[in-house]
Design a binder for these strands. Structure first.
Length: 508
RNA sequence: GCCCCGUUCGUCUAGCUGGCCCAGGACGCCAGGUUUUCAUCCUGGAAAUCAGGGGUUCGAAUCCCCUACGGGGUACCA
């Protein structure tokens, strides 16, 4: 058999912001496509007009832009198989549904939602479950039970109808899944899914299969929640006579809530200490704000890396991978079968790894706006870069920078009492006076200063920790931060002297 | 209820073609070291009787069956 061109798609419905489970699905699709030199497309599945949320589609595109996941074809432009928005393809689906009716694979059903609802309630009272299937359809209002004239008349009179798939009785349906292997279901247990709705739109099932066929999709990589309807999809390909073109399926394990049970949902949001959305989202109706990875200070590369490892691993001990490296090494058969819980701590660690990889310049660029916000809008980029160089190994997020480096911009307003109590002794101020002298008289050089101060401490047989910590206290205000002499160099001679003298004045 | 999928340290997982596994790595945790501080970093440690029970086999985390538990589905939602 000729090798099939690899074409995969990510097909979200614009019912809100995309959550990270969706992002991961898209990522795996992308990696798979690129690994095999194929195409990756973005198709918007907006067949449910009632759930449409304004801004959701734009959000999705912006999110992938931020993450660096690029589509070869899709709603944003590009590709010969458009339109890529199902609402724009609306007219195309009905003939396919009718084709199925003509070939006996589907039928018209005239039962109203209310009627079905009543039947369901009735069944519930008897502790039974209603299903529109090969048994019950015989007692309902559809083109299988009504005679031809009645059907014709109903159709002519404009009565609302849906088109349902007609599952054959007692047939084993086989789904070959690239991740789960062989899955089998009996058709009698399946219900006759609606393919075409009374509002003139197809349901997911129809639109999805028709579009995948038309767009020449070779692999359907999607969440496990679709596994139960995969037999329907397989049967649809068969009913249309598209078996040869049927894509291969790969059903991904779900992303689970880190605490209790259940799949990660949009509502879990900030409750669990990590975002479920790539970007911040403000609900257009309620104005509720849900945080995003971008706004929380995660690097897009880190988010990619984190998501890639939730349900997949390369089988080696390497954990840090760029997108390109992932493309190289990705394979569907290393995807695990069970759901994964998101681990915030590990996510932070990933971000930290990327923080260390970043150049001081990149980090400084991100820091400058924060500095401005704090009122330091005249900081030179060079100064900011030097500070970032000194600090990047100590933080996970850019947002921690201010807490770690504020003393570079403003003198301590107070001195950590714990440290004062522990370190600031009788003779401290006079020793600091001597160090001030050293700073004033000697060349302002890190190494020289370091050596001279050390020599002074040794000469006077002082406790090095005690003196150094007091020096640090007077410059930083507390017992933290990078190398003291680095700090002094960055602060400059004048500022250093001012701060030491002020500490002596305040602490005695 | 019914159908489908899953089940290895707290978490992500290696292990899939049975012996190299009284189960390896990473995060986190604990201890020690480096350091003038905090953090980083380095070293070491605790941490899974491989969900439980039956088989098959000389030998099973790895194959088979059952049970339990978890998850998903069961809409004119996707």
């Amino acid at each position: 058999m000729e090798k099939r061109e690899i074409r995969v798609r990510f097909a979200p419905s614009p019912t809100g912001p995309l959550h990270i489970g969706g992002v991961r699905t898209a990522l795996y699709n992308f990696l798979f496509a690129k690994k095999h030199g194929g195409s990756f497309l973005l198709r918007i599945e907006d067949t449910d007009q009632t759930r449409f949320v304004p801004g959701a589609e734009e959000y999705i595109i912006e999110a992938f832009n931020w993450l660096g996941i690029k589509f070869d074809e899709g709603v944003h432009g590009g590709g010969e198989y458009g339109p890529y928005r199902q609402s724009d393809r609306k007219e195309l689906y009905k003939p396919y549904a009718e084709q199925l009716i003509n070939s006996g694979w589907a039928y018209y059903a005239f039962d109203t939602p209310e009627e079905l609802e009543n039947i369901r309630k009735q069944y519930e009272l008897e502790k039974k479950n209603f299903q529109y299937d090969c048994i019950s359809r015989l007692g309902l209002k559809n083109s299988l039970t009504l005679n031809k004239d009645e059907v014709h008349q109903l159709l002519q009179s404009g009565t609302h109808y849906v088109i349902r798939f007609k599952f054959p009785e007692n047939t084993e349906i086989h789904v070959d899944d690239l991740i789960r292997g062989h899955v089998q279901m009996n058709s009698s247990l399946l219900d006759d899914k609606v393919l075409f709705k009374s509002d003139g739109m197809p349901t997911y099932h129809l639109a999805n299969v028709v579009d995948d066929y038309l767009m020449k999709i070779s692999h359907v990589i999607r969440g496990e929640e679709w596994l139960p309807s995969a037999p329907l999809h397989v049967m649809l390909y068969k009913a249309f006579g598209w078996e040869k073109e049927m894509p291969q399926f790969a059903h991904l394990p779900l992303l689970l809530k880190p605490d209790g049970n259940g799949k990660l949902s949009k509502r879990d949001g900030d409750r669990l200490g990590f975002p479920v959305f790539p970007l911040q989202w403000i609900d257009p109706r309620t104005q509720d704000v849900s945080s995003g990875y971008r706004e929380q200070g995660y690097f897009p590369e880190a988010v990619i890396n984190i998501l890639a490892f939730l349900g997949w691993n390369p089988g080696t001990e390497q954990e840090i991978f760029s997108l390109d490296e992932l493309v190289n090494i990705f394979s569907l058969d290393r995807i695990s079968k069970s759901g994964a819980k998101f681990d915030v701590e590990k996510a932070k660690w990933f971000n930290h790894q990327y923080m260390m990889q970043k150049s001081p310049k990149e980090i400084a660029t991100l820091y400058m706006p924060i500095l401005s916000e704090k009122g330091f809008d005249k900081v030179s980029t060079e100064y900011a870069e030097q500070i970032c160089a000194l600090t990047k190994e100590r933080i996970n997020f850019v947002s921690e920078l201010w807490d770690q480096t504020s003393f570079f911009f403003q003198a301590p307003a107070s001195y950590d009492e714990q440290v004062v109590k522990k370190r600031w002794k009788e003779g401290t101020s006079s020793h600091l006076q001597d160090i001030v002298k050293i700073i004033v008289e000697k060349p302002f050089d890190k190494q020289i200063l370091h050596d001279d101060v050390k020599a002074y401490i040794e000469e006077h047989q002082l406790n090095i920790g005690q003196i150094m910590n007091c020096l640090r206290l007077s410059l930083v205000g507390e017992s933290k931060g990078p190398d003291l002499f680095e700090i002094i160099m960055l602060l400059g001679k004048e500022e250093t002297l001012i701060r030491i003298e002020r500490a002596i004045e305040v602490l005695g």
